[in-house]
Design a protein around this nucleic acid. Structure first.
Lengths: 148, 148
DNA sequence: GTTTGTGCAAAAATTTTGCAGGCAC
DNA sequence: GTGCCTGCAAAATTTTTGCACAAAC
């Protein structure tokens, strides 16, 4: 499966853009971070490898990747201001968020299409996108909750 | 069914707060607006009836209502910055958003509980909240899309 | 009278943009 | 060399806060 850097390089080439060290690092770092980081979190992680890379560049790169459909941005319940970013996967997927440790688990279910089709029939609308978010306690946090 | 103003008044009484004209107007206006307005939109609508009511008061009231569990705030896909607010309904419900006219339709489906239970079993997590968002074309926009 | 609430203006927080210089091709 | 890209600082946008005054009990 193509990595984010590979996809980005392809897009850049086709539009006369350049795969700079900064873009490379941002893509690689984003892909290595599991939990849908904010721009700020990604920036901090990127700075470990390049002290001089700026937050503007992180934002500019993320927005470009988003426009290219390679990265998606969202806000989860309880996120007040900052957006979260993650590489777009080839297949649609949805999110479970642990309200204690903030970890994210991705999932999918055929029932989501069913819901969508039921609703189309009921209302006469056309559904083009679906987003399901579940919130609760992950396995670990659930266990430690029980102990205390 | 209790209105937002009625619920708010009850909470205020029990904690020594006051149902002021501003709070009343904000609650009534929010309840009368169907499409999950932003604070700014609510503010504009409120200003029709009270020119001197400030945006700060709108925010302060919304945050208080939110803390009391009477109003919920969210951001939909494509909303870049501003949050949207709406009165919390007694039963859980989800949202369909028209990507053209921005109208919002609320719905519910028993399959959502099913998805949630399936996922709990699969991952050993505890799901406490669910949020489903569908995006597409509403009946009207779908029709006018076909014509053109 | 005391406490709570409001408007205003200023601050805080997040994201975007203009510009001068730097780097990739 | 040309043109895209970056860092910096400043702007823009949304939301919160401090404070003096006003309103409700």
């Amino acid at each position: 499966m193509a990595t984010l850097v590979q996809n980005a390089r392809k897009r850049l080439r086709s539009q006369g853009g350049r795969m700079t060290g900064q873009r490379w690092l941002i893509c690689e770092t984003l892909e290595s971070m599991s939990g849908h980081p904010t721009a700020e979190e990604l920036f901090e992680q990127v700075q470990v490898h390049d002290r001089s890379l700026s937050l503007s560049t992180v934002y500019r790169t993320l927005r470009w990747l988003e426009a290219e459909g390679l990265v998606s941005s969202r806000r989860f319940d309880g996120d007040q201001r900052q957006e979260r970013f993650d590489p777009v996967h080839p297949s649609e997927h949805h999110h479970f968020l642990c309200t204690v440790c903030k970890s994210v688990i991705e999932f999918d279910s055929p029932l989501i299409d069913q819901i969508s089709e039921d609703f189309e029939e009921l209302e006469g609308v056309l559904v083009q996108c679906r987003s399901v978010e579940l919130y609760g306690l992950c396995r670990q946090c659930r266990a430690s909750e029980n102990k205390s």
